[in-house]
């Protein structure tokens, strides 16, 4: 037999610490900076907030932020029309945002990826049926669907999560189906069939791992959409009910004071915008990072 063929050498010239540090430098710090507060506030809210977010103080209503005239450093972002500390309600609202965004997005990802995978892999009538279903879903206006669901289930956290799952699964299904269609035609899938591998084996060993990058990117982008949708549902009054707080609800309740106390709707609005932007930036970064080479994951 011929001599051995040289194998590639995995470059190990740099010490691990240096590699680790240079890796850190490439992280999307701006996006992390925008998302981190939601995570921290959402999880550790009760230990962080300076005041009880439900504490009504009618002597101190519509107090402006600390750096404006009439502001007070005990209420960093001012107070709302009931005298509640705006910063504390914002922290409290992060919990709803976090739960809704994570549970809603993961739920829709689970359903959407399964449907897209089955449709793309098996094709034929199954595919036609499932994609018709996705088309039907996409032809119904989102707002209408939310109002219908809200009417059927009643307002609350569950409504938001279910609405997001119902609204988002089709976007996952469509993209994943397309990807599965191309992956199905790859040589290694044909070869796996020739090697007598079962469909289950092919899906779990060949299709799913190669969809992982797409899934992660889709999830981060949909997280942003989920946050905005949550705000929309809360704004419509179909989400969480007072005295619980959610950012969308705060914008909704504060909009009447736009002329007199702009900070009441402005800060929750800003929080929604930044979190959404951060998650989109993270999605973009992940797409590039995962696209380049398989080595990152």
């Amino acid at each position: 037999m011929t001599g051995e063929i040289a194998l590639p050498n995995r470059g190990a010239a740099w010490p691990r610490v240096v590699k680790w540090a240079s890796g850190l430098q490439r992280l999307p710090w701006l996006a992390i900076l925008m998302i981190a507060p939601v995570l921290i506030f959402g999880v550790f809210g009760p230990w962080i907030w300076p005041h009880d977010p439900a504490l009504i103080d009618l002597a101190n209503t519509k107090q402006p932020p600390a750096w404006l005239d009439g502001g007070d450093w005990s209420h960093l972002l001012g107070t709302d029309s009931f005298g509640r500390d705006l910063f504390s309600t914002l922290i409290d609202g992060a919990r709803v945002t976090l739960i809704v965004a994570v549970v809603g997005t993961l739920g829709s990802a689970l359903i959407g990826v399964t449907i897209g995978l089955v449709a793309g892999f098996y094709g034929g009538r199954v595919d036609a049926l499932l994609m018709q279903l996705a088309d039907v879903k996409m032809s119904i206006p989102a707002t209408l669907l939310i109002i219908l669901l809200g009417g059927a289930i009643g307002a609350g956290l569950a409504t938001i999560v279910i609405s997001i799952v119902v609204l988002f699964w089709a976007s996952f299904a469509r993209v994943i189906r397309g990807q599965t269609l191309t992956l199905r035609e790859r040589g290694y899938v044909s070869l796996a069939r020739v090697a007598n591998c079962s469909d289950y084996w092919i899906i779990t060993r060949h299709i799913l791992p190669n969809l992982l990058g797409t899934c992660i990117v889709l999830i981060t982008i949909q997280l942003g959409r989920a946050i905005v949708t949550e705000a929309g549902i809360s704004f419509l009054g179909l989400g969480v009910q007072p005295p619980d707080s959610a950012w969308g609800l705060m914008v909704s309740q504060g909009r009447t004071f736009l002329a007199t106390a702009w900070w009441i709707p402005a800060f929750p609005g800003l929080a929604i915008t930044l979190t959404c932007l951060g998650s989109n930036l993270l999605g973009d970064w992940l797409r590039d990072a995962l696209d380049a080479r398989a080595s990152l994951l």
Partner: peptide, 27 residues
């Protein structure tokens, strides 16, 4: 069994070489 034209498409980018070769044996 078969060997295809494109050696880049014949091997799944996320599976180790050993697993790829072992696949028919496992099946």
């Amino acid at each position: 069994q078969a060997v295809f034209q494109d050696p880049y498409s014949s091997l799944s980018p996320r599976r180790r070489i050993g697993d790829a070769i072992a696949e028919p044996l496992i099946a």
